[in-house]
């Protein structure tokens, strides 16, 4: 959007626009958390510490790519199955890789395909049977959990390929692990796709007004289905990278990621009702959530209070920029 901003815009108004931009607010919050952390516990803001937190944020950030697209696509779009799907992706990947680099590629491709099928089922149910997204994806959570259970027989087996573990854990250029570079490439690519591709503009069109999009010849159903496919595919990808982090899997590996993906999207300024927002905001949202969690655990706050805090943070930010229309206008 900035590219088309008229150059003559008065500076004061321009500053206000930047300062009230959710992306700016979220970035400021992220920086503030690091500063507070450094004060509370010296070393929190150290380079290697921050890089470590960014690495952890990358899993959430990558899983939230699809969530961003789904929420942008509107129609009360939400994918509540991302956590379970990411878990299944990791389970399948671990089984196939089984600790060997020679099966790395297959170990990535197969889970991604599995993800695409899950997303396709979600998308078809939502676009053609018009099942509300949260019901469809919540229902699919049960199915995906069932697939994971049936596939593993209750005990997950297999190990991450060493190359994958290396990508996630070994520090490379500038002492930064490869997974962070993967994330940066994805941030650029996804942001570019949303802003500069026909598919991206169509997602915004569908998200902001489905009726108008349909009447303008934009294939609404196809876009909705693609959004859910993308969601499950990126969930699996995130799950695979998480596997590189943990090396082995368990049956609820990534289950708890669902709420944070939604929270990251909302914190990043994407409108819950769709049509406005982008992935850069989500990526920063993922950083905010991860920094916050680290800070709270540095402060020895138990799991329970961390859960409460992330819920409250989401509510406060929603209250700041996600309120609905009044009845009496």
């Amino acid at each position: 959007m900035t590219a088309m901003q008229s150059p003559a815009a008065p500076t004061a108004a321009r500053w206000r626009a930047i300062v009230t931009d959710p992306i700016f607010i979220a970035a400021a919050v992220a920086v503030a958390i690091v500063l507070v952390g450094q004060l509370v516990s010296p070393g929190f803001g150290a380079y290697s510490q921050v890089v470590g937190m960014v690495r952890v944020a990358s899993f959430l950030g990558i899983m939230a790519i699809g969530q961003t697209i789904v929420i942008l696509s509107g129609g009360d779009g939400i994918d509540l199955s991302v956590g379970k799907t990411a878990t299944l992706g990791a389970i399948v990947a671990a089984r196939i890789m089984d600790g060997s680099d020679s099966r790395l590629l297959l170990g990535i491709l197969v889970p991604v395909l599995v993800g695409a099928v899950i997303g396709l089922v979600n998308g078809l149910g939502i676009a053609y049977l018009r099942i509300p997204p949260f019901v469809m994806t919540l229902g699919m959570t049960g199915v995906v959990a069932g697939i994971a259970l049936a596939y593993t027989g209750g005990a997950a087996a297999g190990r991450s390929a060493p190359a994958l573990t290396g990508l996630v854990n070994n520090r490379g250029l500038f002492d930064v692990p490869g997974v962070v570079y993967v994330w940066i490439v994805l941030i650029v690519a996804v942001t570019w796709l949303l802003r500069r591709s026909v598919a991206g503009w169509n997602i915004y069109a569908v998200g902001s007004n489905r009726v108008a999009a349909n009447l303008s010849g934009v294939p609404v159903r196809r876009n909705v289905i693609m959004a859910y496919v993308a969601s499950s595919v990126f969930a699996c990808l995130g799950g695979i990278l998480l596997l590189g982090y943990t090396e082995s899997v368990f049956l609820n590996l990534a289950d708890s990621y669902t709420l944070p993906t939604v929270a990251a999207v909302i914190i990043g300024g994407t409108l819950a009702s769709g049509g406005v927002g982008g992935y850069l905001g989500t990526a920063i949202g993922a950083l905010v959530l991860t920094f916050l969690t680290s800070l709270l655990s540095t402060m020895n706050m138990p799991e329970s209070w961390r859960t409460i805090t992330s819920g409250v943070v989401l509510l406060v930010l929603l209250g700041m920029y996600g309120r609905q229309r009044k009845l009496r206008t």
């Binding site: 959007m1 591709s197 902001s208």
Partner: peptide, 30 residues
Amino acid sequence: ASEGLYSVRSIQENISTVTLGRRARAGLVI
């Protein structure tokens, strides 16, 4: 408002929407 426009989107996108694919490079890239 409810059938003709993407009210939260830019004027540019609203004008482009019908014919976007015709001008895009390979029908994909804007």
